[in-house]
Design a protein around this nucleic acid. Sequence first.
DNA 1: GTAAGTGTTC
Length: 717
Amino acid sequence: MKGREVLVNLFEACNSGKSVAQLHSLTLKDGLAHDSFFATKLNALYAKYESLGHARKVFDETPNRTVYLWNATLRSYCRENQWEETLYLFHNMISDSRGNDEKPDNFTIPIALKACTGLRALAYGKIVHGFVKKHEKVALDMFVGSALIELYSKCGQMGDALKVFNEFSQPDVFLWTSMVTGYEQNGNPEEALEFFFRMVMVGRVDPDRVTLVSAVSACAQLSNFRLGSCVHGVAIRNGFNSDLSLVNSLLNLYAKTGSVKTAASLFGKMPEKDVISWSSMIACYTHNGAILEALNLFNEMIDRGIEPNSVTVVNALQACAVAGNLEEGKKIHELATRKCFELDITVATALIDMYMKCLAPQEAFDLFKRMPKKDVVSWAALLSGYAQNGMAYKSMGVFRNMLSDETQPDAVAMVKLLTACSELGILQQALCLHAYVIKRAFKNNIFVGASLIELYSKCGSIDIANRLFEGIKDKDVVIWSAMIAGYGVHGQGAEALKVFDKMVKHSAVKPNDVTFLSVLSACSHSGLVEEGIEIFNMMVREYQLKPGPEHYGIIVDLLGRTGELDKAMEIVECMPNASAPHVWGALLGACRIHNDTKLGEAAAKSLFLLDPNHAGYYILLSNIYAMDNKWEHVADLRTLIREKGLNKMSGQSVVEARGDIHSFVAGDRRHQDSDQIFGLLGTLEVKMREESYVPDVDFQQHDMHGGCFTDLKCIKA
DNA sequence: GTAAGTGTTC
């Protein structure tokens, strides 16, 4: 028996793969290798240091397997994410085919449940749950409980998870945390936070770092800065504020709540950063319109030798997409190709999106063709990309191909399709798609509903849009915003303001940043300058919403129109992130109206850095120079545009007349009835002059391409 | 012996 004790001590001291093999031969020599105690030890050590194969061999060769040996083996497979094998072994364990083997205990069950969770095998998980209820020997302890909650929540069954949770009178931190995490990951952040606060206040259980991570994520989902800061405070009080995952989730919180400065300072103070920290910070800059900062940070990361992963690449690509920065985008594409990230469907889709937003649809399509696998997201990116490039008619074809490829649209793809269609403004098509939406049961989706309202508005059928709007019983903020935007694009600013007023005064729905964007742009389209500025103040003061770059863009545009260029510049200068291209674009536009060459040059300087390939900005500046009679500057800019190979996308109009669809560009004379059309235009012009309208023809520098009329077919849904 | 953080189309 002395040899046995020595062996036990040797096993305790074992800490490398080499010594496991030595121990194995020692036990074989002493005839103890199949003793279930040593077999279990050997099994676990082999799995840890050597290989699962060796561990399995020990398991297979042991005649009388104790529950410990079973558990050690199951755990080894589960740790390596070999869930099928784990469940196969577990199934052998519970079936009676090997009579002398022991039955699962409450150490076995969580392992089996974890394998079920990994496979999302809800049905088998329920069998395991049934086993727990049937066998009195298996206690429903907290380990089993949280594994069950985990299974149910990963399978989207929070009701079942709650039932399990309620069986415990004194839940521990794991059980509480499983519930918080479960609700958070199932898109129910309110419930997650309720559990979090109940845990602390009623349960009197201290949250640990994982609970806090989930609570912060819930706040991020709600974009609730105040609540998030509270949780941050709790984290600091509990001494978790240097936990890497926790700080990373805080970065995400501050990104989602537009608190770029807080995020940046947190990022700067991090004692250690990993690739997720860098990616999160890049995403934070991108989503808050600080494109230069995002790209700078990405390049800094590369310079420091920190390896970006596919997520980092996606974030950096988004920055290029927002800025329309094709050069940087191509560089990142090269990097992605080197690292074989192009195979990642998410990266490929982000690349398609980037090329589309950088007005390079051909490159996007080439990449799409090369993709070995496409999903509904990549199809949707292609579809909406064409619409963004003035080729919305192609979107309809893409949609048909997508259906032939047996990819069914989800709600987002549907929204994209409806938006593409609204670019065309064809009522016939709108009606077809509306029918499709009803047929495919998308009509209760609020985003789809809002897109239909937008679609009808843009087709000129504001009445149908309004009827649709009135027909929706539980109008939420998205629906209200869509109707306001609908009146806005129609130039019915007063109607838009009426709807907004009704929403604020007679509904329980609170306007959000999108609503304010709709109202502000409605004011801008109808020239309601004072109302717009008043509403902007209301947004900041009454609703405490942080204006994003788009809001600033409109307000700069409004101020610019009234000639208050100084005020507009002031706003641009005190914006939280002064690098959003279209805000500068709005300022540049205002300088064109009011002939301010100096300010225009300054705005253009910033713009050419931020969005170097946007032909429109060069043309705007050249128009400013033209008005100031600085023709040499005009010539320089024209050369620059040519050298850069930039093309201003020509505006294409589509008209529906008696069921036929005609499209044309400026100066287009290809239509068979061209003479008649231009004759009528002449008559209209005379009438307009009679009504004392003077057209603004000071600076006509449109690049005219020969366009053609295209016939579009209504898609059959 | 359990759990957690960044990503594609809105």
